[in-house]
Design a protein around this nucleic acid. Structure first.
Lengths: 119, 119
DNA sequence: CTAGAAGTTGACATCGGTGTGAAGGGCAAG
DNA sequence: CTTGCCCTTCACACCGATGTCAACTTCTAG
């Protein structure tokens, strides 16, 4: 498929998709006249990339980690550690956000909630 | 206390603290010669601000919501709704991150984990 | 063939929070 | 008084992902 379809199917703009490639996160095969061509699997790939971006992982970090995701052969211990470190960071972030929700709840709890009995 | 101490006790740079004030998130009393003076409570305030920033709430949104946090009297229904909406956004973000952790775990699970039995 | 949609590269703009540096005023301790 | 540190304002720089515009080429449908 070409870039337009990939964009439509992932929700990523064509600009972003080209950027991902520029950052080494995604590869494409050029068709004769220079147009990018993607295999089906690219859809999943882009969705993963977006998900990792949303988790606060930078393109730099991703370009270190992604090869490891697709090709188990090149998983060096150092990459594995990095992967685990990122996982831990996200877990910590979840804990932080959970705390924030609790903080907001404490405030909201003080509000008169229509139809809800005060605790 | 003056800005330096507030900075030291919160971990926020003096630059950031002045920025928070500029955005209407924090107030200070100027002492004769123009230096900012803060009450004890400012420490908690700054920590809350940072926490909300980390949760992805913009200064704009915060300046809408913060008065509501400190002064229950001015809680309009619309502010309450906004507060709840932010809460929901964060909960959704937590869910997304949890999914991301699961995705990473799936990959990490494939790795040979030294000393850990394969599941 | 031809018009319009879709692709290409390249460059510049944006946003929000923060870093940083200049130029100067305030205040305590020697 | 002077030295040294903290404070003030103002202004410019940065980062990273994305938007956007321009100038061109390519594909595709009528």
């Amino acid at each position: 498929m070409r870039i337009g379809e990939l964009s439509a199917r992932t929700g990523a703009s064509t600009r972003s998709i080209r950027y991902y490639e520029e950052q080494g996160l995604l590869t494409s095969v050029r068709s004769g006249s220079g147009q990018r061509t993607y295999p089906e699997a690219a859809v999943e790939r882009v969705l993963l990339i977006r998900r990792l971006f949303d988790a606060g992982i930078s393109s730099r970090t991703m370009s270190d980690l992604l090869p490891c995701l697709s090709d188990p052969a090149i998983r060096t211990p150092w990459l594995t550690d990095r992967l685990r470190a990122e996982r831990e960071r996200i877990v910590a972030e979840i804990a932080e956000l959970t705390g924030t929700v609790a903080a907001l709840d404490a405030v909201i709890g003080d509000l008169a909630v229509p139809g809800t009995p005060p605790r």
